[in-house]
Amino acid sequence: MHEMSLAEDMLQIIEDNARSGAYTRVKTVWLEIGQLAGVEEEAMKFCFDAVARHTLAEGARLEIIATEGEGRCPDCHKTVKLAERYDPCPECGGFPVEITGGTEMRVKELEVE
């Protein structure tokens, strides 16, 4: 369900950008999704497919660019990779790691006609 509303917002971005007349059909969408954004890639693809029907993005391919979760440890002050938002620092066990990356949900680029 979460992905469904995100897919609708994504379609709206695509439709808003089409208003300038820059394109009438979208073939591919590149979407950047952070690992800590709480979005399931397969669900997102499924939902986008559904909401794009009968629109200028019907049948468009959704390419997901996954970005890694990243944070800064309060103890060792290193920038570390994080698989989950509430994980301790993989280097020293420090907690809580301040999230610095991997929460993105961004429409990057479109291939259009």
Binding site: D9, A22, R106
Partner: peptide
């Protein structure tokens, strides 16, 4: 929404968007 639905056969091009889904 106002659904533009225009089939086209012209060549594909790239358009930079760089917009957050939650931006709106």
């Amino acid at each position: 929404a106002a659904h533009a639905h225009a089939p086209g056969l012209s060549q594909g091009r790239m358009v930079q968007i760089e917009q957050d889904i939650l931006g709106k």
